[in-house]
Design a protein around this nucleic acid. Structure first.
Lengths: 127, 127
DNA sequence: CGATTCATGAGAACGATTCTCACGCTTGAT
DNA sequence: ATCAAGCGTGAGAATCGTTCTCATGAATCG
């Protein structure tokens, strides 16, 4: 059973205030700046817990760093993220979903999981 | 200009002998076992160089480790990888390619790049 | 109000990858 | 071939994100 603690509430709140994907360290810094100090290890653990519960989305940037974000839609979806400012657009992809399932089945693979993320430069960062 | 060295030839050859995606450390071990010893740092550098030149494909597993593989097809493609044995099927995805480009354009993002990999369990590993 | 047990935090530990830098080898010109 | 120029190499140190340890703190349940 998961317990409700000040730290978890703080991490959840900090996440809600973010529009873009953030790393554990960035969130830790946000919390520190707000005065809601939470240990770094706890931030990592909490984010992992949230991710396992599908309460936050997680992805890796090109450097392999894990980023977290509380998305609008709960249903499975993908992201179009600006490489520069990390502005994120949530996209749902019935098309690719079906494609992924079909490809998996065609090659007799089961438990298909997919990593589908789009990166680009958004309008504002292009200037 | 890139020079041809014993080490690079050895890494290239070791790569060619692999059917599945391998990490830099695994390849380093393969080289050591073959007697073609190459420094670990060099293996990393060489693989990076090959990847930059699009001579090998690279992707990250769930743990964030980077894996390399010399694929059959040179043209852009994606992979369906067995989570257990890493058996890899190369798939080309005009469907998703078009989808990715369309989504990017629709949201006014440029320099679209995408990460599209499929993971599953292959027939043999299902036993 | 306990007792139980999960949660926390500081710092150590980890693990993949990169960096440093002195030395060696490939290369292109001679 | 010979040689100078400079990229490539290797061993180990350094990085850096992330996880682990373990003693202490605090939800939760009866």
């Amino acid at each position: 059973m998961t317990r409700m603690t000040r730290q978890r509430a703080a991490v959840a709140e900090a996440l809600d205030q973010q529009d873009e994907f953030r790393s554990a360290q960035q969130l830790h810094e946000v919390l520190r700046a707000r005065g809601d100090s939470v240990g770094l290890a706890t931030v990592y653990r909490t984010l992992q817990t949230f991710a396992d519960a599908h309460e936050v989305d997680q992805l890796r940037n090109a450097d392999g760093e894990v980023l977290y974000r509380r998305c609008e839609r709960v249903e499975h979806h993908h992201h179009l993220v600006c490489r520069s400012c990390r502005r994120t657009i949530e996209i749902d992809g019935p098309t690719v979903e079906a494609w992924a399932a079909k490809v998996g089945a065609a090659h007799d693979f089961t438990d298909i999981d997919h990593t589908i993320e789009l990166w680009g430069i958004c309008k504002d960062c292009r200037g």
